[in-house]
Write a protein that binds this DNA or RNA. Structure first.
Length: 127
RNA sequence: AUAGCAGGCCACCUUAUCGCCGUGUGCCGAACUCGUUUCGGCAUCUAUUGAGUUUUGCUUCAAGGUUUAAUAGAUUCUGAAUCAAGUUCAGAACAAGGAGGAAAGUCCGGACACCAUAGUGCAGUAUAGCGGGUAACGCCCGUCCGCCGUGAGGUGAGGACAAGUGCAACAGAAAGCAAGUACAGUUCGGCUGUAGUGAAACCAGGUAAACUCUAUACGGUGAAACGUCAUGUAAAUCAGUGUUUAAGGGCUGCACGCUCAAGCUGAAGGGUAGGCGGUUAGAGCUUUUGGGUAACCAAUAGCCUAGAUAAAUGAUAAGGUUCUUCUGAUUUUAUUCAGAGGUUACAGAAUCCGGCUUAUGGCCUGCUUUUUUU
RNA sequence: CGGGAUGUAGCGCAGUCCGGUAGCGCACUCGGCUGGGGGUCGAGUGGUCGCAGGUUCAAAUCCUGUCAUCCCGA
């Protein structure tokens, strides 16, 4: 299977309603410092939408917040193929950054891989 | 060389691999180096300019709509919607672009939108030598005066206490309808001068960043304004009818003024979540010339320069650049060289402009003080 | 994006409107009462009034700027 590393606009989680729904009903997986909130959605087909959040409380500087969001987005983009290949169905993802200090990309990517593997082992067998 | 003052400029760079965002990519004919080429014609769209016509206001004139002419720029492929073209949506390829000097704080001033065409009075707020700049300002420029600095320079809410009211700790006889110490002089009624306290003492006292007065300016609410599309069951909305006692509502606190109401008939709509417009061509940027001491203004030529919305402008690798830590060598010290590691200062557009303030890395220019030499 | 509030002793607050002494409670230190603790009584220590500038003879208080924290509105 071809490894698709693109992250176009459709795959971004944008609906405000969907996000609040995630916080209320979603299940969570944590590999510190990243926390994944996910939910199985029925509306659209063959699509996994993902979003990224860094709380303002931990990072006051907008530059640092943007930087961490970019790192999370990049690591998800490079490793999302494993999720696409192992599961079927529609999911909404939201990645929360719980740490209070910035980390280099190498570490963030390693944690992201661990997190996605964890997701595959819990949800992949069902789907 | 040292310490300092003022002004200006830049905002890490290069290559490779993966990504993100919005913008653009007609028809016919001819030519050749046959291509995502060049040239010419036609059509459409956009922008600018000129002309005609029309609407509104306040005359010259200004703003908007529409028609036409000129100039400039753009018009690829695939799939879907559609009778077709055009157009719209999605994707691919290509092309040219993609954070700041403060984008920040939100402290002032505007543009723009709605509320009556934005009105009247009071209240309230702000400003305050004089002159100028500007769309406007509490900003900027020039200048007088005061204060600070040896100086280059910096800084100042700098009108009025000869309208009224208030306030003045301690000290002092006395801090304001008054009362009165000591000494000296004397025309011995009283008056004049000096002393002492204090920031300030018979003088039209001091104090207005005390109330206040004078002059000037300011209507309110903010892109969550506002318009529009889809969904569509109430209050409210719009149109017609109705016309009174007017409570009350209508986006400033109060008063005036304007306007609306209840009921009936008809129309079409709300909450919530969302799409599109507003939304990026503008008091725009750069060059040259002229006017002005300057801020700035005028003319000319060129340019198009981010538009995201859980929020794009990035990540990784290598090399250089900047800074810094450690080790070794050299040198009287400063420093220089080599190796290793860490780093790229402050900081992220959110309707848009003009300022102010704050954060911060580096470079350059001019000037001043002190010391040394000539 | 818009609106508002608060910074005073180790902690929680007065004082700010209307300018001249910085105070209250808890805590802390010392001493008394008790055999000791607790409790109580008395005395004492401790504050750049967030920071910077200005007005004033004099500023926690008036004015301007700025920093930090917290809250509210969609």
């Amino acid at each position: 299977m071809k490894v698709d590393t693109a992250y176009p606009k459709i795959e971004k989680l944008k609906s405000k309603k969907r996000i609040t729904q995630l916080f209320v009903e979603g299940k969570t997986l944590t590999v510190f410092p990243i926390k994944l909130i996910y939910l199985n959605t029925e509306n659209q087909e063959g699509l996994i939408q993902a979003g990224v959040t860094v709380p303002k409380k931990n990072f006051k500087s907008a530059v640092k917040r943007n930087h961490i969001k970019r790192l999370l987005r990049e690591s998800y983009r490079l490793n999302k193929a494993s999720v696409f290949n192992n599961t079927e169905g529609n999911f909404a993802f939201l990645f929360l950054y719980l740490g209070k200090e910035t980390l280099p990309f190498e570490l963030v990517e390693r944690k992201m891989k661990q997190l996605l593997n964890k997701f595959n082992s819990t949800e992949g067998s069902i789907g």
